[in-house]
Amino acid sequence: MVRRRVVVHGRVQGVFFRARCAEQAAAAGVTGWVANQPDGTVEAVFEGEEAAVSQMLTWCHEGSERAQVSSVDVLEEQPEGLTGFDHR
């Protein structure tokens, strides 16, 4: 089990990024959350098997169909045993 916190930069608000992220996480079996931030970024936490979390990190670099991702910051954290995936 691994946990990664990401901050996604670019045009990522108002383009269904959070909704698609939640769908992708559910499909990958990843728990956590995703939320818009006041500075225009999107922050997310992913917990799960390393391969599934890696899949989510790859997805974040592309984002939703209308997103324009310029960069993704990734931080390793200790898993907390989250359940479900929240779209905040």
Rank of each mutant, 00 (worst) to 15 (best):
M1A: 13
V2N: 07
R5Q: 11
V7N: 07
V7P: 04
V8R: 00
V8C: 02
R11T: 11
V12C: 01
V12P: 02
Q13H: 04
Q13K: 01
Q13T: 05
Q13M: 08
G14P: 06
F16V: 07
F16Q: 10
F17C: 06
R18T: 04
A19M: 12
R20N: 14
R20P: 07
C21N: 10
C21I: 02
C21R: 10
A22Y: 02
A22Q: 11
A22T: 00
E23S: 06
E23V: 03
E23D: 09
Q24I: 03
A25F: 01
A25V: 01
A26E: 13
A27P: 00
A27I: 05
A28V: 00
G29T: 10
G29P: 06
G29N: 04
V30F: 03
V30H: 04
T31W: 08
G32D: 09
W33M: 10
W33C: 10
V34M: 08
V34A: 12
V34W: 06
A35H: 12
Q37T: 13
D39F: 03
D39I: 02
G40M: 00
G40F: 06
G40V: 05
T41A: 08
E43F: 04
E43S: 09
A44K: 03
A44V: 01
V45I: 09
F46I: 03
F46R: 00
E47H: 03
G48N: 08
G48T: 08
E49T: 07
E49L: 01
E49A: 14
E50Y: 06
E50N: 09
A51G: 03
A51F: 00
A52K: 02
A52W: 01
A52H: 01
A52Y: 00
A52V: 01
A52I: 02
A52L: 03
V53W: 01
V53P: 04
S54G: 14
S54W: 05
S54R: 12
Q55H: 12
Q55A: 15
Q55R: 09
Q55T: 09
M56N: 03
M56G: 08
M56P: 07
L57M: 09
T58M: 12
W59C: 04
W59N: 04
C60I: 05
C60F: 04
C60H: 02
H61G: 14
H61K: 15
E62D: 12
E62T: 11
E62S: 12
G63C: 00
S64I: 08
S64T: 12
E65M: 13
R66H: 14
R66C: 11
R66P: 10
A67I: 06
A67L: 05
A67N: 08
S70L: 11
S70N: 09
V72S: 09
V72W: 09
D73G: 12
D73S: 14
V74A: 13
E76K: 13
E76R: 13
E77S: 12
Q78W: 11
Q78C: 10
Q78T: 15
P79N: 04
P79E: 04
E80S: 11
E80A: 15
E80C: 14
E80K: 14
G81T: 04
L82K: 14
G84T: 12
G84S: 14
G84F: 12
G84N: 10
F85E: 02
D86N: 11
D86V: 15
H87V: 13
H87F: 14
H87E: 15
R88L: 13
